[in-house]
């Protein structure tokens, strides 16, 4: 009696699990095959740790590239979401993993560069080996469709006139967006009130509901579709050059803030310190191929994959620059 009911309980759990297995099998079959890589690497599945909860842009980007790398290198790239400690846990784990190329992670501004400056964590950028850039997303200043400010000029003029009166939602207090706004007030004496929110969804809500005056938001598909449809009006972008997809929107630099060109989220591939050169170059080459792959481009969004691929060296430089930039503002080391 006892045993039977215990079994019954288990079958209920097993049915869906079996369905899941069947589907995983299907996926596995379609992904396997293809040409093998030149070198020995990779000869077993690669774990790719994403330092955020599943569902966000980071996961979407990682999944898109993982399936492409998988095709190219003949081994599964398994995405493991490891949120917690704002990505600190994932980075800590990867920094102490064996540098054999079978544990990689998504390196980006917050978890990799800023987190160790704010909190005591056992890693820094020097504990990682860069491989290459997957995607770059600028931050864009947007207002609602019935905002009184129709251009960046009007917006900044109003901000200068009434310091601290305009509220601008940002994706969090320890993001490059927050730092740029802080520098806007420190270096150019234009003060807006930054309202840290959690994620694009909350920011979108607060602008649509008229709770804040503007957003300084990481550009992504959702922002794109709002701009296309007219409920968001872009005033300025944070990248050094104008963005190809908003040719009419000025950069902050053009608006008279030449220093403010750094609020760009970089999604790079990094591994633990001491990754062998052969592994780095294999991955780097494949990453470059993937960043031209139409399927990847469609999933990540064509504007976010830089036309000019940035490899290991370039990514190293990007992170080093970020470190230099944020250290005086955040650093306490």
């Amino acid at each position: 009696m006892t045993m039977r009911s215990a079994l019954k309980k288990n079958t209920v759990v097993f049915l869906p699990a079996l369905a899941g297995l069947a589907m995983m099998g299907l996926v596995g079959c379609s992904a396997a095959g293809s040409q093998a890589a030149e070198a020995d690497y990779p000869s077993k599945p690669v774990t790719f740790v994403v330092p955020f909860a599943a569902g966000g842009p980071s996961t979407v980007t990682a999944l898109a590239f993982a399936s492409c790398l998988e095709k190219g290198l003949g081994q599964p790239f398994v995405i493991e979401n490891q949120p917690g400690a704002s990505g600190g846990l994932a980075m800590q784990e990867v920094s102490s993993a064996k540098p054999d190329g079978y544990t990689l992670t998504l390196g980006t501004n917050g978890p990799l560069v800023m987190n160790p400056m704010i909190n005591k964590l056992n890693y820094g950028i020097e504990d990682f080996t860069s491989v290459g850039v997957m995607a770059q997303m600028p931050t864009v200043l947007v207002v609602g469709e019935d905002s009184p400010y129709e251009s960046a000029d009007e917006f900044f003029a109003a901000a200068e006139k009434h310091p601290g009166k305009l509220s601008v939602a940002i994706p969090g207090a320890t993001t490059s967006a927050a730092i740029e706004l802080k520098r806007l007030s420190d270096e150019y004496d234009i003060e807006v009130t930054a309202v840290p929110a959690v994620g694009n969804a909350e920011m979108t809500t607060s602008l649509l509901g008229g709770h804040v005056d503007a957003l300084f938001i990481t550009d992504h598909q959702d922002v794109q579709s709002r701009i296309d449809e007219g409920s968001f009006v872009p005033l300025a972008v944070s990248s050094p050059e104008r963005a190809g997809w908003y040719p009419d929107v000025p950069t902050l630099a053009e608006q008279g803030f030449p220093e403010l060109v750094n609020a760009v989220s970089v999604f790079g591939v990094v591994g633990p310190k001491g990754l062998p050169d052969a592994v780095v170059s294999t991955l780097e080459a494949e990453l470059q191929t993937c960043s031209a792959d139409p399927a990847v481009i469609k999933q990540v969004g064509e504007m976010f994959i830089p036309e000019q691929f940035s490899g290991a060296g370039a990514l190293d430089e990007i992170f080093a620059d970020m470190q230099d930039l944020y250290e005086p503002i955040l650093g306490q080391k």
Partner: peptide
């Protein structure tokens, strides 16, 4: 029960659901 239960848990979580 201990051996059987362990096997069921292992297969269910580690193998089917891919919990590392």
């Amino acid at each position: 029960l201990a051996v059987g239960g362990t096997a069921v848990f292992y297969v269910g979580f580690a193998v089917l659901l891919g919990v590392p």
